[in-house]
Each structure stands twice: as structure tokens, then as C-alpha cells.
Amino acid sequence: MLAQTDAATMDVSENSDDIILSVNNVEVVFNEVILVLRGLNLKAKRGNITALLGTNGAGKSTSLKAITNLLAMEDGEVTRGSIEYEGEDATHLGPETLVRKGIFLVMEGRGILQDMTVTENLRLGAYSRSNANIKAEIEQIYSYFPRLKERTGLAGYLSGGEQQMLAIGRAMMAKPKLILMDEPSMGLSPLLVKEVFSIIQRLNKELGISILLVEQNAKMALKIADEAYIMENGKIVLDGTAKELMENEDVKEFYLGGGGERRSFKNLKSFKRRKRWL
């Protein structure tokens, strides 16, 4: 098992052109005292779906906000480490710049502007592109999500699933290279979760958008992901290809709900393992 994970890691680090996002040893502190991320390392390959899994409070959402530099509003700050996007340092670029460069975050709870209409939400997705041909592009989004076209009222009155689709459609309007998704399955029925995940897959396959997917629903996420990282207590404890992780006994037990008797994380070799970066 260990050897397998190592091989996967080697793969990732070999060809740096393939890596669209690389988070190196990032530490995030809130209110100057609360340490939330303790040296996060992950790499997302271009054209792949990378999943970031973990339980509540592991720091998944914080990681995404650190990447998109949205922490200032919550009094958080990256105090150590670096974030590289397309081979360039992006640790201290403002959120507007990052969106213009092609990183787009679909926030947890969808981040819909509820007192605006569906069309207005979609238009704002293209805010960073002043030369956008909005009308045609919105039609294109509607061809992906025909259900949205019929909704003329405020976005706040949409159902949860429709709001999630609107959030994804809005992300598409920004024409990003990399979409960060924060728990797209949150609060959705199993059938809708399936639909949303198949849309994410389509974005990846048809439009070639790289995706970093944060999820609690590990089973679904591993099904569509190429690589995955498992996070606990502000750092990565396990990584590998999605296939490897799905077959991993520990992952099965803790995240996929299978396995026999309960064990503690501490006794697991793979969870103790930590990569060295210097």
C-alpha cells in the first residue's frame, strides 16, 4: 500500500507542466492565534478532477479560501508556505486577479445572490471578462441546464438543486481553467447529487476544466475523481489515485462506511506518514 502511494506521488511531481495548482506547505492562521491549516500540501493536475476529502472541520473550505485569497474577510491569513498557479506564485494575488487568471471558487452553500434573478447571477459570473458576449453565453449555459431557463424569479426561490446548478453555470460564465468546488452535494437528495456530479464530470471532459473538488461524500467524489487527498486536522494524511484510495482498507473503513472492527487513526501506519518538503 505504502509503495503504491509513493509511486503516485512520484508521478505527480515528475512533470511540473501538468500541474495547474500546487499548494506547498501552507499554514493558515485565524485571528492571529488559531492555527487551522498546518502545512497543507497538494497538487492538482491539469485536466483532472482532484478530490479533497475529509471530515467536518478538517480545514477543507479554509484550504479553498486560502487558494482564492478570500480569507482576509474572515480575519484569516496565510502565514507560511506558497501557492503556485500555472507555475507562478499566486500566494498574495488579490481575489479579483485570481478570477481573471482563471481560478473560480464555487462556495460552500452555493453562494447564490438570492435577491437577484437567475440571469443577473449568470451575468455576474462573467464580471471579470469585460469582453464577454453575455447573451450568447447565457444561452449556452441554459443548454446545459434547461431547467434554469424557466425560472424568471429571484434566485433565492430556486430549489437547492437548481441553486447548485446556477452556481455551476455561473462558474462556467467566468470561463475558468480551474474550478474549486466546495461541497456541491451539500443538502441535496441522492438523485440530485448524482446529477450534479455528472455535470461536474461533463465540465471536466467536455470543456477541459480542471477541478478541485472538496467533499464529505467520499464515495461519490472518489467515483469521478482521478486523484484524491484525504485531510485531517489541517493537513493531508493520505493521497493517491482515486482507485487506490477506494481500495484502501482504512479509507473504506473511515470514509466509505465499510470495514470490520473500529480502530484508532493513531495506529495506522499510513496516517502517521508525512511527506518531507524541504
Binding site: M73, P95, E96, V99, M107, L124, Y127, S128, A174
Partner: peptide, 8 residues
């Protein structure tokens, strides 16, 4: 925060 995430 939502506004910022849209690049505003």
C-alpha cells in the same frame, strides 16, 4: 465574500 469570489 461572494462578490469577491466572483472577481469583484
Amino acid at each position: 465574500q461572494i462578490a469577491q469570489s466572483l472577481g469583484i
